[in-house]
Design a protein around this nucleic acid. Sequence first.
DNA 1: CTGTCTATGTAGTAACTGCTACATATTTTA
DNA 2: TAAAATATGTAGCAGTTACTACATAGACAG
Lengths: 187, 187
Amino acid sequence: MLHEFMKINEKRRIEVSDRMADHILEYGLAAANLRDLAAAAGTSDRMLLYYFKDKDELMAAVLQVIAMRLTHLLNIAIPASIKLPYKDLLQKLWAVVGSTPLKPFMHVWMELITSKSDNGQNTQTSVAAAIIDGFALWITDHLDQTPNAKHAEVAALLLATLDGLLLLDMAGRRDLTDKAVLGVIGQ
Amino acid sequence: MLHEFMKINEKRRIEVSDRMADHILEYGLAAANLRDLAAAAGTSDRMLLYYFKDKDELMAAVLQVIAMRLTHLLNIAIPASIKLPYKDLLQKLWAVVGSTPLKPFMHVWMELITSKSDNGQNTQTSVAAAIIDGFALWITDHLDQTPNAKHAEVAALLLATLDGLLLLDMAGRRDLTDKAVLGVIGQ
DNA sequence: CTGTCTATGTAGTAACTGCTACATATTTTA
DNA sequence: TAAAATATGTAGCAGTTACTACATAGACAG
């Protein structure tokens, strides 16, 4: 029966997805081919396509693992109870998101965004969208209520600015990110 | 003589680069292979590698064409003499950069940034850096002097915010970009 | 113990990619 | 006009990729 078959392999699929997530976070989405992923997971490409229907299904599983790890890291980095005003939250968030441990996640995320429009891979698109929504929600929760009640707008601005800092950082322009953060403070 | 050889082909190289630029702007960097590029330029892959040493050199030429087109578009969109304060400049710039005619350029640019760290392609890296520097300079020139003299910092912040808006737009979240722009105004 | 189901290795295939060898047309030059 | 340089077509190579056909080992039920 197909259902039981799925259950039997579920554990193995999770193990394998976890180790493939490590590999992708280290080397990026573009360098992810079945043979390398299999080697990283300690198995063969033949077996990967035994556990998963095809590469698309496999990538969806791995990206889900990566997204879950990211939200977990964010949650332990800044507790949910804390609320901060715009400038402080942006600085604190940038200190977290712009740090080296989270860089691989951000890199994968940006690869996701730029690659999605090339082909109609709705799986990757949805993961990228989910990460954005996660970020947006997270920021809205942590942003101290602004007096003029434009809460959602300020949260969106914070998200945009954060993403822009990320982009500049990925382009190797840490000098500009530093200046920009100073610009926020002095504003 | 090698030098004369270069001169003879220079015209043809420019023509071909121009048409390949069209193709890349339409279909993206990832989908750019020699056969398709050749078809778009009305020639063969064999001839492309006759005009250019290898694909790297070819891509460098095409990216240069694209970068030049972008700066030209920016210059005619907003004349150099105008100087605006932060909020107004950001809005005006976003109206230009976030518009549909410039989207292909922004997409290619982001592909450049995310792909560069995968391999050590210094040609693409330098083009991406050049575009950033162009933007930064352009913003610095058009930004009305801020009272507290943190001119460079505010310009960097504007660049970051603009890039973030771009990222959200590419991720298909025009709703968030609209909100963020409102957030800028209300700040 | 025998046959069915699950798991895994071997060895491919077909498509795509950058690139090249070889032949040949076309133009230029001496 | 002969020879040399330039331009272009044909055909393919070698590497990579996702994916598969086939065989077969082991588990386990009857």
